[in-house]
Simulated assay, not measured.
Amino acid sequence: MPDLYEGPIIDAHHHVWDLARNPHPWLEPGARVPHRYGDYDSIKKDYLARDFLADAVPAGVRGSVYMEAEWDPEDAIGERRYIEEQRRESGVPGAMAAQAWLDAPDIAQVLASHAASGIVRSVRHKPGESNESHGSGRGRTLMSDPDWREGYARLEQHGFHFELQTPWQNLPEAVSLLEEFPGITLVLNHSGVLLDRSEETLAGWRAALGAVADHPNVAIKASGLCVQGLPWTVALNREVVLEMIEIFGAERVMFGSNFPVDGMFTTYRDLVDGYREIVSELSLTVQHQFFFGTADRLYAPELFVS
């Protein structure tokens, strides 16, 4: 019989937010930005550290990594200070990925401030799309912008990872980052942003992941695997989770809940139990890497439950 993992878990990708107190423009009443999950009005409500603990601890989670949540882009430091406060009060999170606009004039100062905090392990700046075209006929992202890459280069002096959230179709640009900056670990968010499960999409996604996985300075989060209009199920996600582990090796794959966002499709406990079922056919050593070891190595979060 398969062995279900019963050891400790690190949630390597979650949010908390207090919408009455803090500025998140995309979560304001009436705000509607393009989102891969469609209508997201249901998550426009507070999700505090205590709410995360109530979800996560019964599911076996013992540590976590907060992911920046598109706080006011003019105040990256303010978000970090709020998260530092939450950590002091609740123990959540054990580490964080902070907001940092890599092409901003003050990027050096922002990164230095984050580095001095002691809680920041990485930063995220979604590269988006620009109007510049290249040989494939697609638009280049900020990953090809010289100013952005100059900011990216600054991550190494602080020992920061970079959190890359971009559709898998843009990963050829990420290869150039991996090659030019071998001292910076790039962490692919949300499984490479896989929007559907068509055979054509899966074939392209596999090839794109394989190209980046050839480089040692990359890891991936098994997170954000919901599909608009469908519930999160083991059947929907078994193949892609196991393929990520096969492509990268368990030592470079980690679990992330993406809560409360993925709560649009499932409960926290059902999500974790679904992942447990998916990886149960693998060795317990591999399962421990997936649920705990990889995130512990990359983020070293302070555990919030002994």
Rank of each mutant, 00 (worst) to 15 (best):
A95S: 03
L155D: 08
A115Y: 00
T266S: 15
P34A: 01
R154F: 12
G249Y: 14
E156L: 13
P127E: 07
H215N: 08
P2A: 08
P2K: 12
T166H: 14
Q228F: 13
Y37E: 13
T285I: 06
D147T: 15
V234W: 08
V305I: 14
Y152L: 05
F304W: 13
V33N: 12
R154K: 15
L242P: 05
I119W: 14
E74N: 11
A174K: 01
K44W: 01
N217P: 00
P216H: 05
T201A: 11
D106W: 13
G118K: 11
P73W: 06
G293A: 08
F292T: 11
G91W: 03
V286E: 14
E156I: 03
P127H: 12
T185V: 11
P29C: 01
S113M: 06
T266D: 12
L102Y: 04
E89V: 02
Q86P: 05
E277F: 02
L242R: 00
H215K: 14
F52I: 00
G183D: 15
S176F: 07
L111C: 01
V120E: 11
E277G: 01
F304A: 08
W71P: 02
V305A: 03
P182D: 00
V279A: 14
Q287K: 04
R140W: 10
W232S: 05
R81V: 03
W71Q: 00
G60E: 09
A207S: 08
E179H: 09
I77N: 04
R124N: 02
R197S: 00
E28L: 13
V61H: 02
R62M: 12
Y299T: 00
S257D: 11
P172E: 01
A250D: 08
G30N: 06
E243K: 03
A250S: 10
I77G: 02
E163F: 07
Q169D: 13
E28P: 04
D72R: 15
Y82D: 10
A97T: 05
